[in-house]
């Protein structure tokens, strides 16, 4: 909500374009994407390989620079034909959470420190960062593995820790790239349930890029992407 109590989208994309290469070799990966995602929503982003899903995710994650268009994050313009934020790394650290296909936890840190690392990078002291990490690990029901090494966790547990990490700095947006790909049906649905619960509880907007037919019916809204353009449709919103 802004000052006028008007709801503010967590993500607002307007005519977002991304072109790779130049001249005859140029490829338009995104051809004017419009997208609005509200706080507390879990939205699916689906499309065939090469359709531009990952490019869109990288643009949203401020990892690559779009070619044109406008991106707003919780009401702040972060891109308008050029980056409007000088420190993109700080933007990613403080306002965007990432969940990857593989958990990509830091193998030389224990579970707690994997989660606490983000608040520490943001300048929090070790004690409060670890306290926050334990809160999230408890919320994700992996607090009993808090002192374990990453290699001692199951795939599902690792993914939960990765989700906890993405929430550690109270990011208003989480970008999840195929978070259920390595998991079986039961665990995949568990992860989606967790994402939905967290979105509701923390009012976080979550975009889930997926091919996973098991979880697509769970989304209330789905963005289909094909040939660099998106179109929105209502999902089944099936209960988990």
């Amino acid at each position: 909500m802004d000052k006028m109590n008007k709801p503010v989208p967590a993500i607002q994309l307007t005519g977002l374009k991304k072109r790779y290469g130049t001249g005859d070799a140029a490829v338009d990966a995104l051809k004017g994407v419009d997208m609005t995602i509200w706080p507390g929503e879990v939205v699916g982003l689906v499309g065939p390989s090469g359709s531009g899903k990952t490019t869109l995710l990288k643009c949203l994650g401020a990892v690559i620079e779009p070619t044109a268009g406008r991106m707003e994050l919780a009401g702040d313009v972060i891109y308008d034909d050029a980056w409007k934020i000088p420190d993109l790394r700080a933007l990613r650290r403080d306002r965007i959470g990432f969940v990857f296909q593989a958990p990509y936890l830091i193998p030389f840190l224990d579970v707690t420190d994997n989660v606490a690392l983000l608040p520490m990078l943001a300048g929090q002291d070790n004690t409060s960062a670890r306290k926050r990490a334990l809160e999230l690990l408890t919320a994700l029901d992996v607090q009993h593995r808090a002192g374990a090494q990453v290699s001692q966790l199951s795939g599902g547990e690792q993914q939960r820790v990765a989700i906890a990490r993405s929430l550690a700095n109270h990011a208003p947006v989480i970008l999840a790239d195929e978070p259920t790909a390595p998991l079986d049906s039961e665990r995949a649905l568990t992860v989606v349930r967790i994402l939905n619960d967290l979105a509701r509880e923390y009012q976080t907007a979550i975009i889930v890029v997926t091919h996973d037919e098991k979880i697509i019916p769970t989304f209330r809204r789905i963005y289909h992407i094909r040939d660099g353009k998106t179109h929105e449709e209502a999902g089944e919103g099936r209960a988990i």
Binding site: R89, A90, D94, F98, Y104, I106, L118, L121, R165
Partner: peptide, 12 residues
């Protein structure tokens, strides 16, 4: 991979 993740999550 770890360094890429560190950079992605905002490590300076």
């Amino acid at each position: 991979r770890e360094i890429a993740v560190l950079k992605l999550i905002g490590a300076k």
